[in-house]
Design a protein around this nucleic acid. Structure first.
Lengths: 291, 291
DNA sequence: TTGTACGCGTTATCAA
DNA sequence: TTGATAACGCGTACAA
């Protein structure tokens, strides 16, 4: 018949809404979109719904988001800001479980599921070294994104062991979007000496780097190798297909939701660390003659 | 102070949750992601939240989604399934306003905001004709997506006026994802005669088509022109940069949410039709000599 | 103006 | 085991 029980009334008496909040910096990034898909689909399977909050990285929106999530009595909140910052204080005050994705700020209030960015950096450095690169540049993500620095650090670790490193002047500031990749190339290739490989914070950045490098008449990977991170859907369709470090994006979201559920039911949980994987395509090759 | 009013209790007495439901076929498509961003961000600005439901195109999940949305007393629901199908019956029974995005099934229960796909098809046909193409192929989207057929129809309209058309054997079935574009090319270019231009349902499909065409040793746009639809973020970064018909994705979402709000407050509303726009980049050019 | 009682739909508790 | 009833927290309407 046409009767529908009210989840609102039920929430009133059980104090459980069967709803979790998901706050992301931007849904426009394909990496984030996949994570969202992971939490959303498994939530639906488990009888939960998710309220999505796109913060645009704007701190005031983040504050507003957690406030309304709290008002709506979400049973847990999952956060995919790479930088939690001040906003973390807000999270601590919310009276529900918090799970952080790709952020290690996990304290006593919250747990995290993340990709092993340090190891991702290792894989990157190791591979570039292996195929013969010694002059490597890095294009960062947003300055507040700890994962960006972790990837760089991992890469440096490996390079140091091989007696080389990414010099200060070859780490260019980006923001995780293609445009910033293009700008980074301008600063990187405007120098007297140029790298033979560019490791990028993510694939979106790599897209921009790729285009800018080719626009300068350079060939990829013959003149310059480009290495991405994330393995977004578009990566195989770039020209050349992008070699990249893959994160298990969907799984990241799925695990985060499952952890949130465990927390809600009071089950013990432990932080989760997922291992990235090198995907060899064609944007990296042995360096040619150096100028 | 540490006091937070309860939106649940408020909903109990006012019967308003200040929450809208958004059901999409998949958040993995960049086009959809932008639409989601549009509704989510303007919702937050207006003091509303959105519950996201990713149906995966699976009818049973769609049913489940609208049921829980109804139970949670969402004030309105916005739908971005290109094919509403049986699921439309469910929507009719839900007692809240429904706004459909890019779907014209709008009846007495619901309203729609959509992109003028027919005109988009016109723009596509017109442009290809203008630069000299007479032998054009089309790669469709999912069979149930009315927008796919509308785009084809619009293109055919213009072609007919010029005394030509897309022949039956040159409309290849796709599903809106890159992989299907690659498969389509296999069937299209395996024929005795080949098109000089391929119009694609969307940019994701075009990405696959582009790759497959190049994999066959053909040059784009010299040998074959490729025209996309949507203008996703990756479009300018393909090689060659993709010429495409742009939809105002963010606006689509924004208008949909505003319409939902109008409906909630009982204000009169009218369907909205947004105009697409041709974005000329480099994947289309005049056809060369024909074989 | 300020205050008090009731309703909302469900669950949970307690009495029969 | 079944059936009645309090409580959940906020709006609202009515009374003072």
């Amino acid at each position: 018949m046409g009767y529908t029980p009210s989840a609102i009334a039920r929430a009133m008496s059980t104090r459980r809404t069967h709803t979790v909040g998901l706050v992301v910096t931007t849904i426009a990034d394909p990496f984030v979109a996949e994570v969202v898909r992971g939490v959303e689909e498994t939530a639906l399977d488990r009888g939960y719904n998710v309220i999505l909050c796109d913060s645009t990285g704007d701190p005031s929106r983040e504050i507003a988001a957690v406030r309304t999530l709290r008002e709506k009595w979400v049973d847990a909140v999952i956060v995919t800001s790479s930088w939690v910052g001040d906003f973390y204080a807000q999270l601590a005050e919310i009276r529900v479980p918090v799970v952080l994705i790709n952020n290690q700020q996990a304290g006593e209030y919250s747990f995290s599921v993340r990709n092993d960015d340090l190891h991702g950096g290792h894989l990157a450095g190791q591979y570039l070294l292996e195929i013969g690169h010694r002059h490597i540049a890095y294009v960062t993500g947003p300055a507040q994104a700890t994962s960006s620095w972790l990837r760089l650090e991992g890469c440096q670790d490996v390079l140091h062991q091989a007696g080389t490193e990414i010099p200060q002047e070859w780490v260019a500031q980006g923001d995780g979007r293609p445009r910033s990749g293009e700008c980074a190339v301008a600063s990187l290739l405007g120098q007297w000496s140029r790298p033979s490989a560019i490791f990028c914070y993510n694939d979106m950045t790599a897209m921009g780097v790729l285009r800018a490098v080719k626009a300068r008449g350079l060939s990829v990977p013959r003149d310059i190798s480009i290495l991405g991170y994330d393995d977004i859907a578009a990566a195989p369709y770039l020209d050349p297909p992008l070699t990249t470090i893959a994160q298990a994006k969907y799984i990241l979201g799925q695990k985060a939701l499952e952890m949130a559920l465990d927390l809600i039911q009071g089950r013990p949980v432990a932080d989760i660390l997922l291992q990235p994987q090198l995907i060899v395509r064609e944007s990296c090759a042995a360096p040619g003659q150096r100028l």
